[in-house]
Amino acid sequence: MMFDYFYGQQSEQFTFYRVPKVLFTEDCFWNVSTDAKLLYGILLDRMNLSARNDWLDKDGRVYIIFTIDEIKSSLGCAEKKAVKLLDELEKKCGLIERKRQGLGKPNLIYVKNFISGSVERQFLNCQKDNSGVVENTIQELSKAQGNNTDNKYTEFNDTDPFLSSDFPGKDSEGTGEFARYYEYFYDQLDMEYLKQDFKLDEEILELILRLIVETMCSNRKQIRIASDDKPVEIVRSTFMKLNSEHIRFVMDRFKENTTEVRNIKQYLLASIYNAPYTIDAHYDAQVRHDMASGKLGGRW
């Protein structure tokens, strides 16, 4: 079978399973097989669907149902291996927890937050070396900093309930949790490279990063997204899927916008939340447009 090359941004039209890099870089995961790490990425993807469907237990924890047959189908493996991979994730590294329902019902699977445990040591070690970076980047954004954004986009309105002074995320800026999430997303989103590409808009990039981290640290049950109150676990699950291309997409759409933005924080929060669900459709439409206009002529 012969496959063609990728041209331009065509690779962005697909969806992917995302396996956290820390599973390959942290020493505590060295004895976990690659297949088990891949399964964890698949379970993370399924967790987002569960959160959207309000599959929460009485403590507000998201659970999924992913049967042995589904694992066999997803990985193309035998039942014995599917069971072994689940055992690896639960017993070797504690990345999942299974709860029996009995009466022939499938187990509930709790996918554990890999940041709160194994990566904590890495973040704490980095904090001392990178403390100057963290302290500078989490400060209030300077209004004097130059950028190429129209003034109508820089009206920072703190009157909304999400980022008002009583928002729990603000109180957590000096905590280890805030620093850990900040370091994680700073690396996960390749902020250094984004700041190089958007040199005149570092202020907006910093605001985007803070919005993400404060959402992850929030102890509220719901977060306002585009006039709609969404369960915080759904928003967090979506944010864990973010990568640098999603932020680049948000920045490009933000700079293209010609309408007045009254509340830039709420505008960006909605854009960040929607990015994983709209980026594929956007680039797919762009590819179809380029093909129709002849820009991709002769390549197919």
Results as ranks from 00 to 15, higher is better:
228 D>M: 03
191 M>S: 14
213 V>G: 13
186 Y>V: 02
210 R>K: 09
171 D>A: 14
219 N>C: 10
198 F>L: 02
174 G>N: 13
228 D>H: 07
197 D>A: 09
232 V>M: 06
177 E>W: 08
194 L>E: 03
220 R>W: 11
167 F>Q: 14
185 F>E: 01
184 Y>K: 00
195 K>L: 03
226 A>W: 07
223 I>A: 10
181 Y>H: 14
226 A>R: 07
180 R>E: 15
193 Y>I: 04
184 Y>M: 08
198 F>V: 01
229 D>R: 00
180 R>D: 15
209 L>P: 05
203 E>R: 12
179 A>D: 08
187 D>H: 14
222 Q>K: 12
179 A>Q: 13
176 G>Y: 08
225 I>T: 08
201 D>V: 06
189 L>P: 15
226 A>Q: 03
166 D>L: 11
174 G>W: 02
199 K>N: 08
216 M>V: 03
187 D>I: 09
231 P>V: 13
187 D>N: 10
178 F>M: 05
184 Y>V: 05
206 E>N: 02
222 Q>H: 11
232 V>Q: 01
206 E>T: 06
187 D>R: 12
201 D>T: 12
221 K>L: 09
225 I>E: 04
229 D>C: 06
222 Q>E: 13
225 I>S: 04
232 V>G: 01
210 R>A: 09
209 L>K: 14
211 L>C: 06
172 S>L: 12
201 D>H: 07
225 I>N: 02
181 Y>C: 13
179 A>L: 05
179 A>K: 15
194 L>G: 01
233 E>K: 15
182 Y>F: 15
174 G>E: 10
163 L>K: 00
171 D>G: 13
164 S>R: 11
197 D>P: 00
213 V>Q: 03
192 E>G: 00
215 T>S: 03
205 L>Q: 02
231 P>C: 09
183 E>Q: 12
179 A>P: 10
232 V>Y: 00
189 L>Y: 11
193 Y>L: 14
179 A>F: 14
180 R>G: 15
193 Y>R: 09
189 L>N: 12
193 Y>T: 13
183 E>V: 02
196 Q>D: 10
171 D>W: 06
189 L>H: 14
195 K>P: 00
223 I>R: 02
175 T>N: 08
218 S>N: 06
170 K>Q: 07
209 L>I: 11
180 R>C: 15
231 P>T: 04
185 F>C: 07
202 E>H: 13
196 Q>G: 11
189 L>E: 10
169 G>P: 10
176 G>T: 04
182 Y>P: 11
223 I>M: 14
217 C>L: 02
231 P>W: 05
230 K>E: 06
172 S>N: 10
187 D>C: 12
185 F>I: 05
207 L>M: 09
197 D>F: 03
171 D>S: 08
178 F>G: 00
217 C>R: 00
187 D>A: 10
218 S>R: 04
194 L>V: 00
208 I>V: 15
193 Y>A: 12
215 T>G: 04
184 Y>I: 03
209 L>A: 11
221 K>S: 06
208 I>H: 06
209 L>W: 07
165 S>K: 15
196 Q>Y: 06
180 R>Y: 08
204 I>S: 05
208 I>G: 04
